[in-house]
């Protein structure tokens, strides 16, 4: 399922100069690279693992790998995409050893209404109210937990697409999936979260 096509060098890469600088012997620039991406990667780690210690490990290991493999980085993709590719693989390796990543497939059918009575014809409050009136700390916590409960292969797609803001194409490149695979996983992940939100609001 390799989709990495031969692309021209990503000349519009905002990191191009910095990367070239480091590769041409400017090792002292490496800390600039770290400070440029440490916040984003830490957030990615927190969304993926949920634990500060694991998130820190993820950032550390990712940068160690970046340092090691940077000389071989052929700027065919944006540096940021390559960085997340490393981060995602570090993360997946970690979680394989962990006990609580539920490994299962999500099917479309499980998110269909169970019966006629479950079919809603009116937009519920939580989807109708202004967004800032819905999003509060408690909901934020619920949502983070729900994201962590997603099986990993769905979680990583959701985090990259809906939290980190990568496009379908970029996510496909980062995870070495086809774009249609990314779309399928994203849709199921979103439906999973929608059900969790529905459950949360029905208890109110």
């Amino acid at each position: 399922m390799t989709t990495v096509s031969t692309r021209p060098p990503a000349t519009n890469d905002p990191d191009h100069e910095l990367i070239e600088g480091i590769r041409n012997g400017g090792q002292e620039l490496f800390s600039d690279l770290v400070s440029r991406y440490q916040r984003a990667l830490y957030n990615f780690g927190m969304k993926m693992c949920g634990e500060p210690g694991d998130a820190e490990d993820l950032v550390q290991e990712t940068f160690l790998n970046v340092f090691k493999y940077l000389p071989g980085f052929r700027q065919e993709t944006k540096f940021k995409n390559w960085l997340y590719r490393i981060a995602a693989s570090v993360c997946i390796k970690k979680r394989r050893r962990s006990k609580f990543a539920p490994k299962r497939e999500l099917s479309l059918e499980e998110f269909l209404p169970a019966d006629e009575a479950a079919v809603q014809t009116q937009v519920p409050q939580w989807a109708a109210m202004p967004l800032d009136q819905v999003l509060n700390e408690e909901l934020g916590r619920q949502l983070k937990t729900a994201i962590l409960d997603l099986p990993e292969k769905y979680r990583v797609v959701l985090v990259l697409r809906d939290i980190e803001g990568f496009s379908t194409e970029e996510t496909a490149q980062i995870l070495n999936l086809t774009p249609s695979n990314v779309k399928v996983r994203l849709h199921r992940a979103r439906l999973f979260l929608r059900d969790r939100l529905r459950g949360y609001f029905s208890d109110e």
Binding site: V123, L131, D162, L193, R198
Partner: peptide
């Protein structure tokens, strides 16, 4: 339409989660 609205809201809430 309800399906769409709840899905859109779910996405908006994900996008609105705070950055660690």
């Amino acid at each position: 339409r309800v399906c769409l609205a709840t899905l859109q809201r779910t996405i908006a809430l994900c996008k609105g989660t705070d950055v660690a």
